[in-house]
């Protein structure tokens, strides 16, 4: 998610990839986001106040794992192609995991033995 680059004249290449590189490790992976979305009532949980984040961490997009300064900016984000694409992707099948890789390699489901403690 590169931000706007003010100096670029060429319209198509106006996005700067510098911020993208900087926040690469802070962003969640696809599978983490997918898991978060699968949780019930993930949408209407009150967000914790964090003064380091934009907008005190109150305006958050679950699908894209991004914080926004105001409601207006977030709603604007909801209209973007990037966001819509992301929502569509998250509605699809679950992202690839190590378990999928193991199953594809011809392994069975992991054997964890009998349950020792009943919950």
């Amino acid at each position: 998610m590169g931000g706007k680059c003010p100096h670029r004249k060429v319209k198509k290449r106006r996005l700067s990839h510098k911020t993208d590189r900087r926040s690469k490790f802070l962003r969640k992976g696809d599978d983490a986001v997918y898991e978060e979305l699968q949780k019930p009532d993930a949408e209407n949980k009150p967000l914790p106040v964090d003064e380091d984040l934009p907008g005190m961490g109150q305006y958050y997009c679950l699908h894209c794992d991004r914080y926004f300064a105001t409601v207006a900016v977030r709603d604007e984000h909801f209209k973007t192609k990037k966001h819509k694409k992301r929502v569509k992707q998250m509605l699809g099948p679950a992202p690839h995991t190590q378990l999928d890789a193991d199953l594809a390699a011809g392994m069975g489901m992991p054997d964890n033995g009998p349950k020792l403690m009943s919950m």
């Binding site: 011809g106 392994m107 069975g108 054997d111």
Partner: peptide
């Protein structure tokens, strides 16, 4: 495929 599996 049932023989090779992770046994924890």
């Amino acid at each position: 495929f049932e023989f090779e599996r992770k046994r924890n």
